[in-house]
Design a protein around this nucleic acid. Structure first.
Lengths: 186, 186
DNA sequence: TTCAGTATTTAACATAGGATAAGTTTTGTC
DNA sequence: GACAAAACTTATCCTATGTTAAATACTGAA
């Protein structure tokens, strides 16, 4: 995916504004297993996924909590660093070799003040993510673990091939042992 | 709370932009029990809470799912109507007599295209809500029902006085019977 | 102040999913 | 292609929360 396609997917801007963002982005690549963003750090960049798949997880003493997966076209950001300029609470781990577009948060903040189209793009980015997470939270309360697994499968059929089951279990809010049980029942 | 205070809490704009929003808002009041926004409707307005407390819930055949509470200073919006101009999935119910500031979504969309400060205010509104819901989702996976209840108590001490326990139970993702058990254990 | 409707608690029983531990299968590396 | 490490499954037992139903307490309207 090109950066133009990724940007358009969030919000369609005039070419001029898109070019500004494009010219301020940098293509980068990292191997599978790389930790792209770290908890307890003030992160300086956001990334868009040109190719690959990643997970966000909150590292915890007992067990990590995987709470988000990103595939091609999605935007990776460390919520606390991006929104509040504070240390982030999550790690982002690459689950495959990834090609990414990097954008500096500082530059982006500057552009938000200068270009109304970019400001609206940033608004839409947050709004769409918010809508997704709210729907997901409601579904989580409504559905059994089995139903949530099946919903995930039908929404992201490729995820199960690309992502270790233990992370999917954590995303669903269950243990890997339970997920195994659920898969057998099917 | 005045509308200026509420707006500032999200993002500080020049007085001129604040005045534009203020001049496009309308004070309205409704009694306890009023359903302010309805599922299956394309809602036309968002509201800011000057005084009162409300809940958002997804009505379901078996049982409603309460997933959000709003108190003074918070902004009420029907996510799907606001973000996608589609029918919403939630009801908003007033849990007390409320004084609200009403803003038309259509007008707001227009202002997002005209005033960069307002566009950035809209961006911050979504970003801050997103940060809250993401943190809450992680906490939900990490904590037991009892811990979640205690966390809610310490974060919103007044909520338990203002809101029926059955809605708090639903918000916590448990039944009212379980919440009662938890409260007794304390 | 009483009555009816709500809200809350309590009790008894059922069950989904957790914990632990022991296999088995897959994957990556030399 | 052999080995170690990681991923996944299976089995057993256990616990938190769900379900149902009944008892009690609270609230608001007449």
């Amino acid at each position: 995916m090109t950066i133009e396609e990724i940007l358009d997917q969030v919000y369609e801007m005039p070419v001029r504004s898109k070019d500004i963002l494009k010219n301020n982005s940098k293509e980068v690549s990292f191997p599978k297993g790389h930790i792209l963003l770290r908890a307890e750090r003030l992160e300086k960049s956001i990334y868009m996924i040109r190719k690959g798949v990643v997970r966000a997880f909150a590292p915890q003493e007992e067990r990590d909590i995987t709470f988000w997966f990103g595939e091609e076209g999605e935007t990776i950001l460390s919520m606390r660093s991006y929104v509040e300029h504070k240390k982030s609470y999550e790690h982002i781990e690459l689950l495959a070799d990834c090609d990414l577009y990097e954008l500096k948060i500082e530059k982006l903040q500057e552009l938000y003040q200068q270009d109304i189209h970019i400001a609206n793009w940033g608004r839409k980015l947050a709004e769409k993510e918010l809508l997704k997470i709210e729907s997901r939270m409601i579904a989580a309360e409504l559905l059994s673990a089995k139903e949530r697994y099946e919903a995930l499968l039908s929404q992201f059929p490729s995820l199960v091939q690309r992502v270790p089951l233990k992370y999917i279990a954590s995303y669903l809010g269950i243990t890997q042992v339970s997920l195994s049980r659920i898969r057998k029942m099917k």
